[in-house]
């Protein structure tokens, strides 16, 4: 079964725009765990989203994904507070592509630029999202559900396919 296309080009551009990224997984006992990610890419057909993270920081998350494939990822644009959550049930742990390591520095620089207006120093941001290429691991999934989470009473509203959630 192929899922309906959840990400329109605007949403795909949004989530790959050097945002604050956190990914959650669950274990068999019902405990969720979380890791900060250091990059995001979307497949050409926009059906597959891949998050990059330091393997050394993601141990419990990777164990959960290996066991059940369930993930939730939150994307936050610090300046606008626009926040989106994607969920999937078919997550896989993958080796990173060669270009993923090349994307680490541009992601850190872009994320630092987003936080500069909030007086967050660039060395802080670079430290927060630092990852050696050898430590990099990828998790990809098909987003099945999207939720708008921009702070406010409508946070948590499920988005229809193609809806922006802005």
């Amino acid at each position: 079964m192929t899922s309906p296309e959840l990400l329109d080009p605007e949403l795909a551009a949004f989530i790959t725009g050097n945002l604050s990224l956190q990914l959650a997984a669950t274990d068999a006992a019902g405990l969720a765990t979380v890791v900060r990610c250091v990059g995001c890419r979307v497949s050409a057909d926009r059906r597959r989203v891949t998050l990059l993270m330091p393997r050394s920081q993601a141990t419990p998350v990777l164990a959960g994904i290996a066991a059940n494939g369930r993930v939730a990822v939150v994307f936050n644009e610090p300046s606008s507070y626009r926040t989106l959550q994607l969920k999937g049930r078919d997550a896989r742990i993958e080796a990173p592509l060669p270009e993923d390591a090349d994307a680490l520095q541009p992601y850190a620089a872009g994320f630092a630029r987003r936080l500069a207006p909030l007086q967050v120093p660039e060395p802080y941001v670079r430290t927060l999202v630092s990852c050696s290429p050898e430590d990099l691991v990828a998790v990809s999934f098909t987003p099945l559900e999207a939720y708008a989470q921009t702070p406010g009473p409508h946070a948590g509203r499920r988005l229809a396919p193609g809806e922006s959630g802005a």
Binding site: S20, Q22, L23, A24, A25, T26, G30, L31, A32, T33, V34, R36, G64, N68, R70, V71, A72, V73, V74, N76, T83, Q85, K87, R89, Q149, P151, A155, G156
Partner: peptide
């Protein structure tokens, strides 16, 4: 620096959000 909170639903699906 905003923290993230991950929870697990009765269906076993994770949920993640930033905490005010």
């Amino acid at each position: 620096v905003p923290s993230g909170i991950a929870t697990c639903g009765v269906d076993g699906m994770p949920n993640i959000t930033y905490v005010s």
